[in-house]
Design a binder for these strands. Sequence first.
DNA 1: TGCTTCGGCGCACAACTGTTAACTGAGTCG
DNA 2: CGACTCAGTTAACAGTTGTGCGCCGAAGCA
Lengths: 229, 229
Amino acid sequence: MSTTSGAPSGASSGAQSGAPPAASQRAAQKARTRRALLDAGLALLEHQSLSSLGLREIARAVGVSPTAFYRHFHDVADLGVALVEESLDGLRELIRAGLAEYGADADRIDHAVDALAAHVRAHPEHVRFLVRERHGGVAPVRQAIGAQLDGFAEEVAGVLERDEISRGWTRDDLRMLGETYVDHMVMTASAFLEAAQGEGPDEEHVARTARRQLRLISLGRRHWMSETG
Amino acid sequence: MSTTSGAPSGASSGAQSGAPPAASQRAAQKARTRRALLDAGLALLEHQSLSSLGLREIARAVGVSPTAFYRHFHDVADLGVALVEESLDGLRELIRAGLAEYGADADRIDHAVDALAAHVRAHPEHVRFLVRERHGGVAPVRQAIGAQLDGFAEEVAGVLERDEISRGWTRDDLRMLGETYVDHMVMTASAFLEAAQGEGPDEEHVARTARRQLRLISLGRRHWMSETG
DNA sequence: TGCTTCGGCGCACAACTGTTAACTGAGTCG
DNA sequence: CGACTCAGTTAACAGTTGTGCGCCGAAGCA
């Protein structure tokens, strides 16, 4: 209901386990085309933004007729929000795995920055899409990304709460700190991306700057109460 | 050469003083049309991004024939970079005026955030344009904004250098701090913008968060050397 | 005065866009 | 097996786009 018109309403075998295991071989083909559309769209978004991406353009890249597009998405914007979920799944995993340690110590900072750099290197198109459309011209996509990043901030705040340093912090202050970290992550991811394609400074410089910025924030975090309480 | 084809090569009266004072009355009309194109373009960019903005669309909004557009700009992208200069002039002024005090003390932080909020309230379209196209699909515009923001960071670093707290700071570290401030300014401006149009939290909440984030950075700044030296 | 400059216009062109409609044929199910 | 579902097709529609060509007429200049 949220993404496509005719969701693959599980008819035959009880498709309950996580990923689509086999499905009806018909739905499998449908899923394949859908994937192709998503991939083609993402690829085409390297040199333009979503609001200029045409329905026919995507269909042509996949090798299907324009009308076939409607079997999967109402809009190009609809395809966009589907890409949001997909693109952020990777980052969410990265946050949950290595960002419980996105806290204070130098080693953890180093590890977090490296993990982010690796992620950007592995999925450049996804990161580019998120950064570009976060403030882009398509409202639904923009709001979807915003909401997800908001969730990230909340999640990070929750993790930070379980830290000894956070003793006495307001829930509100923790939330503020979480937003700071998330914003910094996005900015850094964008910088890594630019580095990867020759624009701006090289990757090592970006990593250096990111590390020092995180150290700066950590320092402020450690001395927060002394001036506020 | 940088922006338009036929620059108004000063023929008649010595038009040397800053702004266009009178010009040849012909060039005046040309300038008026040019302004109209820029304004119309900026207005149209509220609900889309530059890479989807059409040449005819702008001309139609102004009430001019499409071919007239070429007398002023080669491309829509060309108009875009012109908008960059214009949009950033306002911010540059704001930085030089009130951001020499974008430093440490609570009063200065309050003032800086208020000034930024006022600027966003006064020029929403400019801010929206910058935030949206900073990572947008049009390379020349993206790079122009990036370069200008880079200049801002350098400038801020220069101001911070003249601060007593910065005694012993590496030039590199100051640059890092300047980038942090500029990034934060952009993020905050974007948040103010969203607040102004109903998306996201209200303006006062954004201001509160921004102030606390700046205080956090200031704290980290004050204790920087103790862990690094 | 007459000549030149040039911002803006109308027109035409080929290419492209989103969307509708009726149709095909392989996969699915009772 | 026969009925049905439905992902994908072709054809056509009314608009739209960027761009080139030749023209006009007011402003500028000698």
